[in-house]
Simulated scan of single mutants.
Amino acid sequence: MKSIFDNTTFGRFNLKSRIIRSGLWESENESQKNLTQEIFKRYGKLAENNVGIIVTELISMYSHDRFSDYSHYINYPFFIKEFREVTDIAHEFDTPIFAQIGFVNCNVNGKQMIEVNDLEIEDIRKIQTDYVIAAKKVAFAGFDGIQLNIGNNYYLSRVMNPFENQREDEYGGNTFNRVRMIIEIIKLIKQTTNLHIHCKVNLYQDRDDSLEICKILAENCADSLQITKFLSPQYFRKGQSNENMLVDFADNVSKEVSIPVVLGGGWSDMDTIQELINTTDIEYLSMYRPFVKSQSFLTEWMENKHGSSKCKTCNNCYWKKSSVCIIDSED
C-alpha cells in the first residue's frame, strides 16, 4: 500500500514524501523586495518537516506585472545572494527546492499589454531570452529546479489556449504549434543549466487538447508536470465536479506520460490523499493553503498516522495576497 511518506524518486531527487509544497504570494518582503528573517524561518520550517519538494512563492519575470506587488522579482539586485540563503536552508535538510517563475501581462520591447495574437517574432524571442536569463539566475542561486508557471491565467497558458491563440504562423493553429514557444524555452534552459523543469499546466475546456499539451511537454524535455485548472484554486472544494474532473484528468495524464505528474487542487486531509494515491496512478499532490496555516503539519500527520489541516479554507491568504494566515498564524 502506498503512503504519503514513502521515499520516492522524482526525476533525480529522492523525496521524503509525496507532498509538494506549492507557493503563491509573498507578503513579507520589505519595500525593496529584501527577504526578511521571517521568510528564512518559514522556509526552514518547511524543509525540516517532511515536505517532498518546496516550490517558492511566485518570482515575477517583470516589474509592474499584475501580481508583482505581491511577489519576488527576478531582477532584484540581491536576488542571487538572498535566495542562495533560502536554498542553503532547504539543502541543509536534504529538501529539493524549485523557483516558481511566471508573468501575466506581456510588456516587452517597449510595448504594453501585448495580446497573444499580436506577438511579433521579436517579442517571442525577447520573452525566451528573458526566461533563459531568469533560469541562469535561479541556477546561480542554488535552486534544484524551476517551475514554469504556464497554468492558471498566466501569459504562457494563454499562448497554449486554443480558444485564445488564433495565430496563423508557426506559433498558432495545431496543438504542437501553440506549445512551440514553451518547448523552445525549455530546450534553451536545458542547454544552459542543469535545472529540473517542472511545468504547471492547465486542464482547459478541451480535455483532449489538454492531454496532448501534456504529452508534448513530456516528450520535449519537461521533467515533471503539475496539473491545475484555468480557474484559481479557491474554486475547488471536496466533492465538487471541478475537483473530480481534475483528478480524472491527472490520472489520465499519469497513465500517458513517463515523467512525474503532480495533482493540484485544495487537498487537506490525509485519509483522502492516501485513498487517492492508492486508487489512481497519481503519485504526487501539491498543497498551498495548509502550509500557510502551518509549515509543520506533515510531521504531525506522520507521527499520528492521520490528520487534517487546520486551515479553514477562508481564502484570505489568496484574496489578500498574503503568505501568512490572516486568522491565526503558526507561532
Rank of each mutant, 00 (worst) to 15 (best):
T129E: 14
L195F: 00
E92K: 12
S329H: 14
Y62V: 09
P233H: 04
D88N: 14
R237N: 13
T272E: 14
N304D: 10
D251M: 06
F236W: 11
Q234M: 14
K320P: 01
N14V: 13
I150G: 08
I273E: 01
S329W: 13
W301S: 02
D130Q: 02
L46A: 05
K320M: 04
Q295R: 08
V116Y: 09
Q112H: 15
F5K: 03
E243Y: 12
A250L: 09
V253H: 00
D281K: 11
M1F: 05
M287V: 08
S17P: 09
S322L: 09
L148R: 08
K310L: 13
K229N: 07
A90P: 00
Q240P: 05
H64R: 13
L119T: 11
R289D: 05
Q234D: 14
I277W: 11
D271I: 10
G142W: 02
L231S: 10
A222Q: 11
Q295V: 07
Y131D: 00
K45R: 13
S241F: 11
G142E: 05
D169G: 00
W25R: 02
I327H: 11
R21E: 10
S329E: 14
L263D: 09
K215C: 02
S254F: 08
L156M: 12
E168A: 13
T279K: 08
L188N: 13
N117D: 14
I127Y: 05
I121C: 10
A141P: 05
S241Q: 15
E82R: 03
D208I: 12
P77L: 04
R42Q: 12
H196C: 00
Y235V: 11
N165G: 07
F83P: 04
R180T: 03
S258E: 12
I114W: 08
M1L: 09
L156Y: 11
H196A: 00
A99H: 07
I127Q: 03
A99T: 11
M160Y: 03
M113C: 14
Y155I: 07
K312W: 07
N202L: 02
K81D: 08
